[in-house]
Design a protein around this nucleic acid. Sequence first.
DNA 1: GTACTATCTCTAGTAGCTATAGGTTCAAGG
DNA 2: CCTTGAACCTATAGCTACTAGAGATAGTAC
Lengths: 146, 146
Amino acid sequence: MMNLLTIGRAAEAVGCKVQTIRYYEQIGLLPSPSRSGGNQRLYDEEAIRRLSFIRHARELGFPLQTIRDLISLADNPEYSCEAADAIAKKQLEDVDRRLKRLQALRRELERMVEQCKGGRIANCRVIETLGDHTLCEAKNHDIPKV
Amino acid sequence: MMNLLTIGRAAEAVGCKVQTIRYYEQIGLLPSPSRSGGNQRLYDEEAIRRLSFIRHARELGFPLQTIRDLISLADNPEYSCEAADAIAKKQLEDVDRRLKRLQALRRELERMVEQCKGGRIANCRVIETLGDHTLCEAKNHDIPKV
DNA sequence: GTACTATCTCTAGTAGCTATAGGTTCAAGG
DNA sequence: CCTTGAACCTATAGCTACTAGAGATAGTAC
């Protein structure tokens, strides 16, 4: 008999919360697993593989919809690799954009922090810099999604 | 008379959406502005300053709660600069963590993309890499918040 | 048998907006 | 003065990706 994992073990195995797994099932990203006599979810190896796939992709920043796309690609092995490649490339570009953005933010924050000489709030560079947009590199960019 | 801006002009001035301004008012981050005879919001310079402050801080990645803290510091100019400085430092550290994380993700994504030789899905490195966590630098890290 | 933990379903909450519906106000042109 | 169209109003729901809680049942260890 292959080893079946309860939802708690499965969560532990892939490094996420129990509720997250139920959530993935709820939104149709994970198929409903088999159940024990007492109605508890039991995950086989295939299910764990899919869950790992999802988690790994999430850790790489892929949004759930993209993961959905990747899964449907993976489920059709006769198709070409191109689409999956394109998705990964797009994700890479996305990460590059976020990196650039974060680096700009970092520079401005660092400038803010360096200029703080520990006086009164009234002449605090941090507050002042935040209030004055004019010197800001980050101007006219989108807000970083965290 | 000083120039008062309608909400649309205010949004334009600070580069955000009209609804965002109403939202900030709703959650108590912006005080309720004065109104025209026809009940439309009118923003004075002080209000615009506060709004810019909020937007700029948001662009730098500060969460709204932190911005609340900064505002209450700024509103008490007799206090020391230390607290504001500490907040900015914390934010800088946060940005640094995210940068490191994103850089690791970038490396893994790049590896994925480079290895894709454009064959069938069945042996697609992108899919395979996502399914196999073992070579992943990013292992055991939190999922990046986008 | 009794504890204690893990699981179940269902619902609501989180951040930070964004969008929609259905109605009013305002400014410009005729 | 009247009309048209954009901008405004409130209220509510939706978005992503979870996360947390309540109250009930199942499984496990002694």
